[in-house]
C-alpha cells in the first residue's frame, strides 16, 4: 500500500517538477510572476485533445503538437505583452496584472471553444504495468520516463552548456549580461519557449492520464509556484526537488487524511517554508558547496 502511494506520489511529483522547472526558467530569468503559464498549460492539453480526438492524429504527434502550441503561446505572450512592458520599464506589478489578464482571457476563450465540462482523452480502461507490487498505467509509466529523461538533461544543460551559463548569468544580473554583449531579448524568448514547452509536456501527459477542464491550469501553476519557493527561488534544481516533495506529500495526504486536504497541506508547507526557511531547500546545498570550495 505504502509502495503504491509512493509510486503515485512519484508520478504526481514528476509532473509538478516538470511544470515547476518550466516556471523557474521563466521566473528566475525574467522575474515575471507569469500567471498565464497556467493558460499555456491548459492550451497545450486542449490542443492535444483537438489533434487526438477530433482530428484523429496519432498519440505521439498530438503530444508534440500540444507541446509546440504551448511553446508558441509562451513566446507570443513574451513578444506581445511582456517585452514591450519591459522596454517601457514597467513595474513587476504591471507585469503580474497583465499576466493575470492574459490568463483570464485565454482560459475563457478555451472554455468558449471547448465548453466547461471535463474532457477525457483516453476513454475506457487503461492498460497497466505491474512492478514490485506497484500498479501503474502506461501513461503514468510514460510520465515517469519523460520526467526521468528531461529533468536531469535540462539541469545538466543549465549547468554545463554555454546557453545554460548565459541563462544563469541573466538570472543573476540581466543589466550586466546585456552590457557584456548578451542579447537579453533572445534569452527571454528562449526561456519562454523552453519553460512553456515543459508546461505543455506536463499538461499533455496529465490530460492523457486524468483528463482536463478549462480551469485545470491555475491549481497546477500554484503548485508549481509553491514547488519553486519550497525548492529555492533562483535555483533550477530546487523546483525539481520541491516538485517531488510536494508530489509525495500530496500522495500521503490522500492516504492518511483525505484528498480534500491536498491544497490546505500544500499551502501549509509553503507557509512553513516561508517562515522557517524562506531561501528554500536548494540554497543550503549551495552554501555547502561554497564552504567546500
Amino acid at each position: 500500500m505504502l509502495l503504491q502511494l509512493l509510486a503515485n506520489g512519484l508520478v504526481n511529483g514528476c509532473m509538478i517538477a516538470l511544470m515547476a522547472l518550466g516556471y523557474a526558467l521563466i521566473y528566475n530569468t525574467t522575474r515575471i510572476f507569469h500567471v498565464a503559464h497556467g493558460a499555456a498549460y491548459t492550451a497545450a492539453a486542449y490542443l492535444c485533445y483537438l489533434l487526438l480526438i477530433v482530428f484523429k492524429w496519432p498519440l505521439l504527434l498530438a503530444v508534440v503538437g500540444g507541446v509546440a502550441a504551448a511553446a508558441l503561446l509562451g513566446v507570443t505572450m513574451e513578444l506581445a505583452v511582456y517585452a514591450p512592458l519591459y522596454r517601457r520599464g514597467a513595474s513587476d506589478l504591471i507585469s503580474l496584472i497583465s499576466s493575470l489578464g492574459l490568463y483570464v482571457a485565454l482560459v475563457n476563450l478555451i472554455a468558449l471553444l471547448f465548453g466547461n465540462e471535463t474532457k477525457v482523452l483516453r476513454p475506457g480502461v487503461e492498460k497497466t504495468c505491474r512492478l514490485l507490487g506497484v500498479i501503474l498505467t502506461r501513461i503514468q509509466v510514460a510520465e515517469v520516463v519523460v520526467a526521468a529523461v528531461l529533468l536531469p538533461l535540462l539541469v545538466l544543460f543549465l549547468k554545463r552548456t554555454l546557453w545554460g551559463k548565459i541563462i544563469r548569468g541573466v538570472r543573476d544580473n540581466p543589466v550586466l549580461a546585456e552590457v557584456l554583449g548578451i542579447d537579453l531579448m533572445a534569452v527571454r524568448i528562449a526561456v519562454f519557449a523552453a519553460g512553456s514547452a515543459l508546461a505543455g509536456m506536463a499538461a499533455c501527459l496529465t490530460a492523457l492520464d486524468v483528463g482536463m477542464d478549462p480551469q485545470v491550469g491555475m491549481p497546477v501553476l500554484l503548485t508549481a509556484a509553491v514547488a519553486l519557493i519550497v525548492g529555492g527561488v533562483g535555483t533550477f534544481e530546487g523546483p525539481v526537488i520541491g516538485g517531488f516533495l510536494l508530489g509525495l506529500i500530496q500522495s500521503l495526504i490522500v492516504w492518511k487524511i483525505s484528498a480534500q486536504w491536498t491544497d490546505v497541506i500544500t499551502f501549509g508547507v509553503l507557509i512553513v517554508f516561508l517562515v522557517f526557511r524562506p531561501e528554500g531547500i536548494a540554497s543550503r546545498r549551495r552554501r555547502l558547496e561554497e564552504s567546500a570550495a
Binding site: 546557453w163 544563469r168 548569468g169 543573476d172 544580473n173 554583449g181
Partner: peptide, 22 residues
C-alpha cells in the same frame, strides 16, 4: 558587478565573444 552564483571561470566564459554554442 559579477554573476554571484556562477563560478569565477563561468563569469569569464559568459563574456567571451559570440560563440557558435550560442
Amino acid at each position: 558587478r559579477i554573476f554571484p552564483n556562477l563560478t569565477v571561470l563561468e563569469n569569464v566564459l559568459v563574456a567571451r565573444p559570440i560563440q557558435r554554442g550560442e
